[in-house]
């Protein structure tokens, strides 16, 4: 139980730290800007006002339109989560088998090819690759739509905010049709988004497996007459996955960065797109709220994976 308590305390401390960091950042910024409304408060008083309003759930309002940032954030969140989670699932589904395929014969032809493709993907500017996919498959071959989440002809009631789940839940006659439209529209953005994490998972697990194969326990398992496949999947993988799970927070960060670009290119109405608009409007009040909310989301996810990792790893759990 000590672990859980520690994690919760840590999470609260870090959440508080984020508010301070965001506050300081924008406070410093505003002193450099020609400000319209000098309130005459000290920084500390400003912080008190900021914190107390935030604890009441007020993360600021949009300069244009005047909606609360919090509502707007949760309104945009499902679209982004849909992209990110599909990308992560694809990354693991594709990356794991590829890594195992590569490590079957280290430095063989397959392994080298997989590594080369991985390095190429690492070098790929996401924004360029997104446009290339658009040129080739959307405007060129016309296989996929250019952007958006769902065709406007479908009036699907919002339940969870996720287009995939909502269309499945919907009782409209065209619900199924709408579901496939939603899937269809996700193909290109998700492909663009999933490239980098797929390469990451593949290369990291491959490297981990290669190292683990040198361990004595793999050798002795082999000597006891176990098949290669059994050794790779049952003995190597659980240990090779650990460091990749360790770097989950980095992966989330990486994904959020790509998501902003992908949402911009494919006009995807998610957090990233919204954030860019706020930046263009220079809506600092809303930006501060959005920054805190995004960082808190990432922190929450990190803590969750930490806890999951703790429960799945016997070496950590004593």
């Amino acid at each position: 139980m000590g672990f859980m308590l520690k994690q919760i305390v840590r999470l609260i401390l870090m959440l508080w730290g984020i508010t301070v960091l965001a506050f300081v950042f924008f406070e410093v910024a505003q002193t450099t800007l020609p400000s319209e409304d000098q309130t005459g408060f000290t920084h500390f008083e400003n912080y008190q006002i900021f914190m107390s309003s935030m604890l009441e759930g007020d993360f600021g309002t949009l300069h244009q339109g005047g909606e609360p940032v919090l509502t707007e954030f949760f309104h945009k969140l499902p679209a982004s989560t849909e992209l990110i989670f599909t990308a992560i699932i694809i990354a693991w589904l594709v990356g794991l088998p590829l890594a195992l395929l590569a490590v079957k014969k280290p430095m063989g032809i397959t392994d080298r090819t997989i590594q080369l493709i991985g390095t190429t993907i690492y070098s790929l500017p996401v924004f360029w690759w997104g446009i290339i996919l658009l040129i080739m498959f959307a405007t060129g071959l016309e296989w996929f739509p250019v952007g958006g989440r769902l065709d406007y002809i479908y009036a699907i009631e919002t339940v969870t905010g996720s287009a995939l789940i909502d269309t499945l839940l919907s009782s409209k006659v065209y619900a199924q049709e709408a579901f496939w439209d939603a899937v269809y529209r996700m193909v290109l953005p998700v492909t663009t988004l999933a490239m980098l994490p797929t390469a990451y998972v593949t290369l990291q697990i491959r490297a981990g497996m290669e190292e683990i194969l040198q361990h004595d326990y793999m050798k002795s398992a082999k000597a006891r007459g176990m098949s290669i496949r059994r050794i790779l999947w049952l003995h190597g993988l659980p240990n090779a996955v650990q460091p990749v799970l360790n770097s989950m927070s980095m992966q989330f960060s990486m994904l959020v960065t790509s998501t902003i670009i992908v949402e911009f290119i494919f006009s995807w109405p998610g957090i990233g797109h919204w954030f860019l608009i706020l930046i263009q409007r220079q809506d600092y009040d809303a930006l501060r709220g959005a920054l805190i909310l995004i960082a808190s989301m990432i922190l929450l996810l990190n803590t969750t994976t930490d806890v999951l990792r703790y429960w799945s790893n016997p070496r950590l759990r004593r």
Partner: peptide, 10 residues
Amino acid sequence: DPSTSLNPSK
């Protein structure tokens, strides 16, 4: 080294 010749996660 017996500590590395047993699979740590099983």
